[in-house]
Structures are given as structure tokens and as C-alpha cells.
Nucleic acid binder design. Structure first.
Lengths: 106, 106
DNA sequence: CTGTTCTATAACCATCACATTACATAAAGG
DNA sequence: CCTTTATGTAATGTGATGGTTATAGAACAG
């Protein structure tokens, strides 16, 4: 994963509204209106957040009539996790099981 | 891990200079001057980055004479990894081994 | 076509983020 | 003390970020 993409992914995750959107999309796909209803925020604000998530590759979007469905795409999360896991030797324990995980990510 | 802390950790990781600092500190502790020499950037800029990393809990700092040693503290990385791993059901494979990891993080 | 619904974009504003240079401060040594 | 070394802080410029309201556009229904 490139530094540019890590910038985008971690930057996208740095906002709690966007993390909450991802958390919701983990349960079900959703359109913009449904997501807007979850927050005390305007629809254009949500659209902007979705754009950031899309550019980071964390969601994909498809037209469904007049609506646009957002779907979680967790591959960048997996890649970012792999990056962070390079520091596993500094974690307090569980090295071996994490090593198994890392091997599986190749 | 609180939303506030996730804001700080992901925000800290969103900058590639800070990620490079963490990568270097993974090999050895270092003072500000040593870290400054690694980048084409002023010393105050590095000091600011270290402050961000410190507030996020990703490094700790100790005085060593006139110098201040920075040391990697990877616990927040572990916690942030655990957050991302909640989306493991969307990853393409390796669910079971990741589940083992998650169990071990409690 | 026209109207309705859903979403995106434009224009704007306030604040934050990241860099600079100049200067202040802390610790150690002669 | 005074100097040197190492680092932090202040002031500043600039672009990015995150929100708003108003408006434009896309898809469908009648």
C-alpha cells in the first residue's frame, strides 16, 4: 500500500463521523438519506464525508434508481491494519497469533 | 478506546512524516536532532510532529541531559488495530486467525 | 413535459494543520 | 556566570478540513 493511500485511509479514519458511517455500513448498505438521518448534520455534509471515504477506497457506490447505495469496502482497512501490525514486536503480547494473521495477508 | 483517542491516533497516523518517525523509532529510540536529520524539514517542524505523536500516546519522551529521547509506545496502535479488525467479516479471507488475534487483545 | 425525490455541487466561512523563521528556555561544562 | 548544545515556543503564511445554505442535476412517476 502506497504512502498516498495510507494518507487517505488514515485521514478518512481520523474523523469520527466517517468512522460512524463505516460502522453503520458494516451492518447494511445505505443511501445518503438514510445516513443523513443518523447524524445531526446536513445532507451535503454527509455527501462530502462519503466522497472522502470513496476516494480512500473505503466505500464503493452504485446507483439504485434515484438513490446511490454506499457499500463498505474493507480492503484498505486490511492493508492499513497490516501496516500497523509491523509494530507488533512492541505490543505487549500475542505476537505469534498476529504473525499468523500477517502471513495470511500476503 | 474512546472516540477522542481514535481521533488522535488516526489523525497522527494520517501524516507520512509521522509514520516515518514511528518507523524509525521502531528500530531505536532517538532524540530530536537525530530525527530532524532524517528529513528535509526544520527542527521545529519535527518537534511539532513529536508533540502530536506524544499527545496521541504513540511515543513517550524522557530527558537525557540536554536531549529528549523519544520512544515508541505501540499500545495505541494495538487498540486502533482492534477497532479496524471489527470489520474483519468484510475482509476477503483469514477470518479465523484474525478472530484469534482479537480474542487475545482483550 | 412536469413535478417529486434524492443527491451533488457551488459559494462561503471558521477553524485547523503544517510548514517557515526568529527567539526563548533548559541542561551541562569550563 | 557564560557559552554551547539541544529543544521548545511564538508569530506568521497558506492550504486543507468541516460545516453551512442555496442551487443544480439525475432518475423516476404520472
Amino acid at each position: 500500500m502506497s504512502e498516498e493511500q495510507l494518507d487517505l485511509v488514515f485521514g478518512a479514519l481520523a474523523d469520527r463521523t466517517r468512522r460512524a458511517i463505516l460502522a453503520h455500513l458494516a451492518t447494511t448498505d445505505a443511501n445518503v438519506g438514510e445516513l443523513t438521518a443518523l447524524f445531526t448534520m446536513s445532507q451535503p455534509a454527509i455527501s462530502k464525508h462519503l466522497k472522502v471515504l470513496e476516494v480512500a477506497g473505503l466505500i464503493s457506490r452504485t446507483r439504485q434508481g434515484t438513490m446511490r447505495l454506499s457499500r463498505l469496502e474493507a480492503a484498505p482497512l486490511r492493508d492499513a491494519t497490516a501496516w500497523m501490525a509491523d509494530y507488533r514486536t512492541y505490543w505487549s503480547e500475542s505476537y505469534d497469533r498476529l504473525d499468523e494473521l500477517l502471513d495470511s495477508l500476503d
